[in-house]
């Protein structure tokens, strides 16, 4: 069973008369020899790590070793001012919470990467809280997200070193958007469109981390990734269809990745990482090296 395109997923879905989560379970069973229960329990474990990472980031003191991140998520979560609605404010805070846990050497589930690990947990926990999605449905949502992630891994890249932040938070936003649509009862066409919109919104996004640390701007791009996921899902669920099919959007993403300068792909040589302030920060933190004794 090979899945190389969204076309393949739709074909299996039709042949098996199954939902996308069922297609992904079957894919994993055939790929790894695991049982259905093992696959579901594996995703449940990931879900639990995601929930725990959100809670830890909102509860613990999370200050990164560099000092650049300092309990930002809690600040957003508890802010008296909200620009739209309280649940939007919370969704953003959850993504930032996981980003901070990641930067502070806490436990996270990379999804699809550690640098973008805030988006899907924020999407899923927000869906659980705002729409009463239970654990078993949340697992189905994660399986839909995995389908989109798989297509990107196969036909473009989720690595910052290959596709910039487009590959990391752009992919996570697309995965999250498709999960939201599925969980709110959207059809396969709407799932596809949501993923397209999210990637289109992140097309060409560079990876330019200050001092090479997975901290700034990563935490903000995780927050914006959540907004991207919900925005894209809203548009798709309203019945607006993507003009370009997902398979072509992913190929475009790959082309853009190839055109991007290596300076903008996780090497901390361009963009924000190359600003005067970032260079000063880099000198201050990175070259204070203690090599033990």
């Amino acid at each position: 069973m090979e899945i190389n395109s969204f076309e393949d997923i739709l074909r299996y879905s039709e042949q098996m008369n199954a939902t996308i989560p069922e297609v992904m379970i079957e894919y994993e069973i055939r790929k790894t020899g695991k049982s259905r229960e093992q696959v579901i329990e594996g995703v449940r474990k990931i879900l639990n790590v995601m929930i725990e990472s959100v809670n830890n980031g909102l509860a613990r003191d999370v200050k990164s070793p560099s000092g650049l991140l300092n309990n930002f998520a809690k600040k957003v979560y508890n802010a008296k001012v909200n620009v739209l609605t309280v649940n939007f404010q919370k969704a953003i805070a959850r993504a930032m919470a996981v980003s901070e846990v990641n930067a502070c050497m806490g436990r996270i589930a990379a999804a699809p990467t550690a640098g973008s690990s805030g988006i899907i947990p924020a999407v899923i926990t927000t869906m659980m809280e705002e729409h009463g999605i239970d654990e078993d449905r949340a697992i189905e949502g994660l399986l839909v997200a995995s389908a989109i992630g798989l297509l990107i891994v196969k036909n473009a890249s989720v690595a910052g070193s290959e596709a910039g932040c487009m590959g990391e938070t752009g992919s996570a936003a697309a995965m999250g958007a498709s999960a939201i649509v599925y969980l709110l009862g959207g059809n396969n066409k709407q799932i596809e469109s949501a993923a397209c919109f999210a990637i289109e919104g992140a097309m060409g996004l560079v990876c330019d981390p200050i001092a090479g640390l997975v901290e700034i701007p990563c935490i903000f791009r995780n927050a914006i990734g959540v907004a991207n996921a919900f925005t894209s899902a809203q548009i798709a669920l309203s019945g607006v269809e993507s003009i370009i099919p997902l398979d072509e959007v992913i190929l475009a993403m790959n082309e853009v990745a190839e055109l991007m300068s290596p300076k903008l792909k996780e090497t901390a040589q361009g963009g924000l990482a190359n600003t005067k302030t970032a260079r000063e920060i880099q000198r201050r933190f990175i070259y204070q090296i203690d090599i033990g004794k």
Binding site: M24, Y27, E28, K31, T32, V39, G42, V43, K45, I46, V49, V101, N102, A103, C104, M105, G106, R107, I108, A109, A110, A111, P112, T113, A114, G115, S117, I120, L142, L143, A145, S146, G149, L150, V153, K154, V158, M175, L213, V214, E215
Partner: peptide, 22 residues
């Protein structure tokens, strides 16, 4: 050939799968 757990996972201590988990 990626497993879905290459996409959702690994569960790891941050911040970097190459520089920390590996």
């Amino acid at each position: 050939m990626p497993s879905i757990f290459d996409i959702l996972g690994p569960v790891m201590i941050g911040p970097s799968s190459s520089h920390t988990a590996g």
